[in-house]
Write a protein that binds this DNA or RNA. Structure first.
Lengths: 115, 115
DNA sequence: CATCAATATACCCCTCTGGTTATATAACGG
DNA sequence: CCGTTATATAACCAGAGGGGTATATTGATG
C-alpha cells in the first residue's frame, strides 16, 4: 500500500481527518461542520476509505466514519530517517549544555501546526 | 508556510529527497542517478526550493542542492496528535503484558514501506 | 572571442482531480 | 405504500501540474 501523501495533500481531506480525530462522524455532520456540500464530503470519504484511512459502520441509512491511523503510522515511519536531521541538532545542543553544568538552561519548545 | 504535503505527494520529489538525505547533490548527478531528464529534475528542485525543502549553493555553473529538514519537522509536528492513536494501543499492550508475566509472548511486527 | 558545460526557463500537451448539480439507492416514519 | 432522510454515484467542467523538447543563461576554457 502506497504512502498516503497524495491523500494528505488535499486540505479538505486533512480537515476531515481533523474532525475524525475527535470522534466518529456522520457524513451529514461533517458536511455541516465544514460547511461544504454532502457529495463533496462523500467523494473525499470514498478516497480516504479506499486508502484505508477511515472505516465505515452502517447504522440504518446513517454511516459512521471512523479514523484508521495505520497509514499515518506508515508515514511516520517514512519520516524516521529525516527526523534524525533535526533531532541530531537538538541532541548536540543537549550534550553541549551538559558539558556546561553551571550555565542556566532554557527549556525546549514544541510548536503544533494546523492546516 | 503551508505544510509540505503537496510536495511529498509527488514520488519524483520523494526520490530526490531520498538522494539528498545522503549528501548534497548536483543537478546533473541527480538526473543521472534517477535516470530522468535534467529539466525535469530542475523543475522539481525549483518547487522544493520555493517550499524551503532544499537550499542551493552555487559553485561556478554547478549548483549544490542541500536538504533543509525544517518543513519535515513541521510535518512531524502535524502528525503528533494522530501519533497518539497508535502509540496508545502499543502502550496499552505493553501494560497488559506487564500484568501477565507468565504468559508466553508473541513479538509484534513492523512493516517498512518504500515509495 | 568561440565553444562547451551545467543549469534554468518557456512552451505545449495531456492527464488527473476536485468541485458542482442532478440523480440513484436504501431505510425509516406515518 | 409514500414521502422523507441520509448517503452514494454519475456526468460534466475547469484548473493544476507533471512531462517532454527547445532554448536562454552563465561561467569555464582554450
Amino acid at each position: 500500500m502506497p504512502l498516503p501523501f497524495d491523500l494528505l495533500a488535499d486540505p479538505t481531506r486533512r480537515r476531515i481527518l481533523g474532525l475524525l480525530l475527535r470522534r466518529p462522524y456522520l457524513v451529514g455532520e461533517m458536511a455541516h461542520e465544514l460547511e461544504m456540500s454532502q457529495p463533496r464530503v462523500s467523494k473525499h470519504l470514498r478516497v480516504l476509505r479506499d486508502a484505508g484511512l477511515v472505516t465505515v459502520r452502517a447504522e440504518a441509512q446513517r454511516r459512521w466514519y471512523v479514523l484508521r491511523p495505520e497509514p499515518l503510522a506508515d508515514l511516520d515511519a517514512w519520516l524516521a530517517p529525516y527526523r534524525r536531521l533535526w533531532t541530531e541538532r537538538l541532541d548536540a545542543l543537549e550534550r553541549h549544555l551538559e558539558t556546561m553544568p553551571d550555565t542556566p538552561m532554557e527549556r525546549s519548545r514544541h510548536a503544533a501546526e494546523e492546516s
